[in-house]
């Protein structure tokens, strides 16, 4: 089973991102589960959402305590939240940031992938000029960093969810996929093998 945790703020679309990601995995034949942090939060406050992915039906109905992947929609959260809490030592972090992976101060054995998803979202006209919404763009970066999930399933999930209003989001996803910065030692095939075994 893969468990994914998305960090965002109320209003940044973490919940929508979780259901898009769940859908994308479902198209690949996986059993999925997507759920928000069970709580009440106002716009701007840090929030979480979760995805579980497995080849078998998922019976676990608890919170996610030890995620394999972390998606961070807003790098400003790093300053006051430990986004790596409970993260699998072999885990992957996908971070919305203009920095290169090597420049991000996260101490651990994890693979860090970065993408400037906010800028891409702004370029593609997602959200408003003052607050671009990066929740779809970052999924492109996720597909790049996690070869288990083909980009095509992400775009399909977006198309199925947004219908006629998908164009800008698809552009953003593809752009993010191309512009994702990966660590220099990133070997996609090795990762794929790792998750196939699990």
């Amino acid at each position: 089973m893969i468990e994914i945790r998305i960090h965002g703020r109320g209003g940044q679309g973490a919940v929508v991102a979780s259901s898009l990601l769940a859908k994308a995995y479902a198209y690949e034949g996986f059993h999925v589960q997507a759920f928000p942090e069970f709580g009440v939060e106002r716009r701007g406050a840090p929030v979480l959402s979760f995805i579980r992915v497995d080849e078998k039906p998922i019976r676990l109905r608890t919170k996610v305590y030890q995620p394999n992947h972390i998606i961070v929609l807003d790098s400003a959260l790093l300053k006051f939240i430990d986004v790596t809490a409970g993260l699998d030592p072999n885990g992957i972090i996908i971070l919305n940031s203009p920095l290169k992976p090597g420049e991000v101060k996260l101490n651990g054995s994890w693979i860090v992938a970065t993408v400037n998803a906010s800028e891409i979202a702004a370029e593609c006209g997602i959200g408003t000029a003052t607050s671009p919404i990066a929740n779809t763009a970052i999924l492109g970066a996720y597909a790049r960093a996690v070869p288990l999930l083909p980009l095509m399933s992400v775009t399909k999930a977006i198309e199925e969810t947004f219908g006629g209003k998908s164009r800008n989001n698809l552009m953003a996803v593809e752009k993010a996929f191309e512009n994702t910065a990966l660590p220099s030692n990133f070997v996609a095939e090795a990762l794929e093998a790792y998750y196939q075994i699990r």
């Binding site: 259901s19 997507a34 928000p36 069970f38 109905r61």
Partner: peptide, 12 residues
Amino acid sequence: EDAFILSHTSEV
């Protein structure tokens, strides 16, 4: 159904 654990958890 259980609040959140089922009510807000999406599955196929």
